Computed example of a mutant assay.
Amino acid sequence: MSSSQLDPFAPTGVQFRPVSLELIKVRLAAVAFFLLCSAAVAIILFFLLPQKWIGLLVIATVVAIALWLLWLIPRQVRAMGWAVTGTDLQIRKGIMFKSLTVVPLGRLQYVDVEEGPIARHFAIAQVKLHTASATTDAQLPGIPREQAAQLREQIADLAESNLEGI
């Protein structure tokens, strides 16, 4: 038996497609606001407090978090992938803490496609799958807008052909 057959995160015969790398920009933009606000507070603390080391410590913490996120977010996005088989949608993510979510298409009740203003600027959307059980709902972020619409239709057609959902 080969190692790929033993890997639960790489099922045999399933080709995972990556999410759009534009998701990196969207996620970095989302945390940028928080980091800029934190940096502003840190700078204000530096000038207002008589103990300058407290302000410097807060500034250093904000810089460390920013650098860590600049390293982490691209790695997280590159580790994400998805695949549609005839009976399910599989979503894989994670590097250190891996996860493979398998959503049976026959259990789907509806599929949403969503995009916020930042995602819209980068022409990506998020596909949300809602099943009969809330514990098997899934989200697939970072799908190019046109591909998200096609995926929604493909999933709806497959779910209908399985005669259990939608």
Rank of each mutant, 00 (worst) to 15 (best):
L89G: 01
V127F: 09
P74C: 12
L108K: 06
L49V: 03
G55F: 01
T136A: 13
W53R: 00
L45E: 01
A39R: 00
I43A: 14
M96R: 11
I43E: 00
R75W: 12
S133A: 15
I59W: 03
I44F: 14
Q109P: 00
A32D: 12
V62K: 00
F47N: 09
R107L: 07
I91M: 07
A60M: 14
G81D: 00
Q109K: 01
T101M: 07
L28A: 02
A60H: 04
G55I: 00
L45S: 05
A83S: 08
Q109W: 01
L67E: 10
L49W: 07
F97N: 14
R92T: 00
G55V: 00
F46C: 01
M96C: 04
A40N: 02
S38Y: 12
A79Y: 09
I95L: 15
W82H: 10
A60Y: 02
V103D: 06
I44Y: 04
S133E: 07
L28M: 14
H121R: 15
A123V: 11
L35D: 05
L56F: 06
A30G: 12
L56V: 04
V103Y: 05
T87E: 14
I118T: 13
A66S: 15
I54V: 08
V63I: 15
F34V: 13
G86T: 06
R75S: 14
F122A: 10
S99A: 11
P117N: 08
Q76H: 13
S133G: 15
I59E: 04
R92L: 02
L70P: 01
A29F: 11
I43G: 01
F46K: 03
Q126C: 12
W68E: 11
I43H: 02
A79R: 01
M80D: 00
I65S: 07
T61V: 15
E115W: 15
Q90K: 07
A39W: 02
R27C: 07
E114A: 15
W71N: 09
F122L: 14
A29G: 10
V102Y: 01
R27L: 05
I95K: 10
K98D: 03
L57S: 13
V103H: 07
L49E: 11
I118C: 03
Q109N: 09
T136C: 05
F34Q: 14
I43D: 00
R120F: 04
Q126P: 02
F34C: 08
L48C: 04
